[in-house]
Design a protein around this nucleic acid. Sequence first.
DNA 1: TTGAAAGCGCTAACAG
DNA 2: CTGTTAGCGCTTTCAA
Lengths: 348, 348
Amino acid sequence: MVEKAGPRRVTIVDVARHAQVSTTAVSKVLRNAYGASPAMREKVQQAISELGFRPSAAARGLRGQTYTIGVMLPELRNLFFADILDGITAQLGGTDYQVLLAPGCNGEKAEARVMDAMIDRSMDGLILIAPVSSKKRLTAVAHTVPTVVVGRHGASPAYDSVTDDDVAGAGLVVDHLVEHGHRRIAHIEHHETDPVRLAEMPNAQRAQGYRDAMRAHGLGDEIDIASTSYTQEGGYLGAKELLARPQRPTAIFAGADIVALGAMEAIAQAGLTIPGDISIVGYDNSALAAFAPVSLTSVDQDGRQMGADAARLVVSRIGERDRRTAQVKLSPTLVVRRTSAAPTGAAR
Amino acid sequence: MVEKAGPRRVTIVDVARHAQVSTTAVSKVLRNAYGASPAMREKVQQAISELGFRPSAAARGLRGQTYTIGVMLPELRNLFFADILDGITAQLGGTDYQVLLAPGCNGEKAEARVMDAMIDRSMDGLILIAPVSSKKRLTAVAHTVPTVVVGRHGASPAYDSVTDDDVAGAGLVVDHLVEHGHRRIAHIEHHETDPVRLAEMPNAQRAQGYRDAMRAHGLGDEIDIASTSYTQEGGYLGAKELLARPQRPTAIFAGADIVALGAMEAIAQAGLTIPGDISIVGYDNSALAAFAPVSLTSVDQDGRQMGADAARLVVSRIGERDRRTAQVKLSPTLVVRRTSAAPTGAAR
DNA sequence: TTGAAAGCGCTAACAG
DNA sequence: CTGTTAGCGCTTTCAA
C-alpha cells in the first residue's frame, strides 16, 4: 500500500515550539549565524535531532541560499570530467553545499537551457566546465549568480576561471616525440572557426601549442593537421585522413584521449602497429589512458586539482561577490606509456 | 566590474501587470491548468516572452512542483550509467522536467545524504540507480517522493523498478564459452553478504546465474569464484587469485566491464595472451568494451531503454501516486568481440 | 472564466 | 541575546 503522502514534513515552527524558542532562533542555529547563546544552540540542536528536522531548500531559496552548487559539464563519457568532479566534491565535502549536475549539455542551446534551469532553481553558485557558449552569455550568467568557468582561457571581469596550460601541454607532446626522433608529427584537432573560441577553447590552444612547438624544433614544414572533432569518431576519421597521405606521419598527437582511441582503431584497421609503425599520444590522461590494453601516452591535467580550485573559488565568490576575479592556471605533465616510441627504420 | 546583482528578477506579478490580468491567470497558463481562455493564454504568453519571465523553481516548490527529477547513481566512471542517463534525458527531453544528478554516492551513508538532499530540494521524483541502501530506507524514501529504482531485483509495493535479467545474462556468457569448448570457466563477483542484497543486487544475481548455468552444463564441479568488488582493482586482484590456481581457468567471466579491464591487466602482467591463453567476458557492454584496443565480449543491457522506462515510470507516478507499482524486466544480449575464443590445445 | 487572498517554510529587519 | 513580523514568488482554494 502506498501512503497518500506521509505525515506533514517537520518545519522550523515545529522545532521552535518543541525547543520553546522562536523560529528566528532556530534559523540562526541552522545558519550558524551570529546572535545565539550556546545554551540556546544546544536546545535547538537537540530539538532538531529529536524531530528529525531537515530545512526545506525550496523555502530557504526564496529568501536566502539553497546551499546548492550547480555543475555543468559537456558529457559524462569523458572520464577526465569525472576527475574534476571528484575534486569539486572533495573540496565541498565538509561544507553544507550539495553538488548537483546537469547531464547532456552539448551545444550552445542545451547549455543555455541548463544554465537557466540552474538559475531558476536558485542555485548559489555555478561551475561551468568547458562551456561553448558565447562569452557574452557567460558574462550575463555570471552577473546573475557566482560563476567559475573551468577549461576556457581568457580572463573575464565577471567570472573566475581555472585552466590548464594547453599550449605547454601540446609542447610537452611534441618535445617528447622529437626527442625520440620523430619528425613527421601530425595533429588531430577539434575544428573551430569562431574567433573568440579560437582564443579561448583548449582545443584551439592545443593546436596552437603544437604549431609553436613544431616551429621551435625547426619542423614548421612538417606541420600537418587533420581537423575533425574531439570524439572517438573524429579520431577515427582524422587518422584515416592522415594515413592516406603520400608520406604518412610517424606519430600522431591527438587532442584528447578519446580522439586517440578512435585513431588507434583506424590504425589497427590499416594493419599498422602501435608504436611500431606509428606512435600516438593523447591528452587528458583519463582513466582510459591508464587501462592496460590501451596504455596511452597522454598529457595529465590534474583534474582533481582543477575541480578543487573551482569549488574553492565559487564558495569564495558566494561570500564576496564583488571581489576581483581570479585566474588559476595549472601546469600539465606528460605521462609516457606504451603507445609512443622511436620510429622504426622502415617508417622513418 | 561585477554588478552588485542585476535588476530584480522578473516575477509573476510583473507578468500579470504587463498583461493586465491576475497572477492566478498567469499561474494557470504556466501550468497549462484548466480554466483559462485562449485569448487570455495568448496575452499571458506574449507578456512572458516580452519580459523574458522564467518561473522560480524555488517558489514553485513551496506550493507545487519543482519540475525536477533527481537521479542518483553510484559513480560516473561506469560508462553503462551514462547510457541509462541518455535514456532518461531522451525520454524527458520534450517535457518541462529537468534532470539533475548527484555525484559521489558510493556507500549507504553517501546515498542517504544524497536522497535527503534531493528531498530537501523538493524534487518531484527520484530515479535511484543501483542503490545499495537497505530496502527499508528505499521504501521510506519512496513514501515521501515518487521513486523508481533501477538495477535492483525484487518487487516493492512502494516503488517501481526497472531491471535487466542478470541471471539470464550470466547464462548467455556461460553458454557462449561452453559452446567454444571451455570447461574451466571462473567468475569474478562483487562480494556480498547482506541477505537482502544477495537476493536483490545484480551482482549477486549474476553470480547465481553463473552457478545455475554451469550446473546446467554439467560443470558444477568447475565452479570457481573470486570474490572481490566491481572495480578495476577488484578485477585485477580477482584475476591474480584465479591465475594462481594449480589449474588455472581457460576463461574468466567478469561481473562488469570495468572488472574485465582490471583482469586483463593482471593477465597481461602474467605474460598470458587474450584470448589465446585465456578468454575473458565482461558485463554491461559499456562504450569501453567497444573500444578497438579493448574489444571486449560483453553482455549488453540496453541502458538507454532502462533509462527511458525509468523516466516514463517516474513521470507516471508523479501523476498518479497511488497506482500499483510496476516491475519492468528487460532481456540482455551477448555481444561477441575479440576477447573470447576457443581455448588452445595447450591450455586445454 | 476570472481574480482576491491566504499561505507554503524560511530569512531578515527591526524592536524589545 | 531573543522574539515579532513582514515578506520571498508561486499555487490554490474560494468567491464573484
